[in-house]
Amino acid sequence: MSSHEENIQNEFDLNPSKAKSKRLNIPTLEYFWQSSPLSAGNLNNVPCFLRSIKAFDNFSDYELKQFSHFIHKRSFSLDEVIIEEGDSGFGFYLIYDGDVEVFTRRTRVVDGLTEVYQQLVVRLSKFEYFGELALLEKQNKRNASVVSRGNTTLLAIYKPDIEELIERHPVIGAKFLQGISLIVAHRFNKVTEELRNTKEKLMELEHKLENSKI
């Protein structure tokens, strides 16, 4: 309970007659308390979930509530393919509940025959997300497959909804795109770091190879 409400409650306890005149304010307070998207009664709602995601840090509660009207809740069962590598992509997904696995298609030669197989890249769980590039690129091709592991609920945001969001609520649209840019920048930094490490390892190996030759 907030301190302001505690003060009002104390006043009620000390002076009931005075409290009677204040009673009119209670529904108003209740209204403001309940209308907050992040209030205790609504802990399981979409805005509250979005509040836990870093990309939505710069959103106000009202903006999160407005943004949640553009989101689709979709359920997937065990082993159901959410997105498939090579498909055209139009949606960005947030894991609301459950786990998913990300696979990429690889080829290997076994007994002289080329075989295609799916290699597990990463396992994602609640509060994580994937498919953000689909919202930025005009003709996006998915670069990995994502499969549901168990009963999974995802929050999907599709390209047409983002276009509508930008038209209807430009500020929220801009903040969302800023969030997406942060995600992309974060991924880019990670890839750059990994590339740098790989290069260093490669150079180390080359150096070792040269030394062994000498």
Binding site: E80, E84, F103, V147
Partner: peptide
């Protein structure tokens, strides 16, 4: 790993 499509 085999991906099952259209399950359910």
């Amino acid at each position: 790993m085999k991906i099952q499509k259209f399950k359910s």
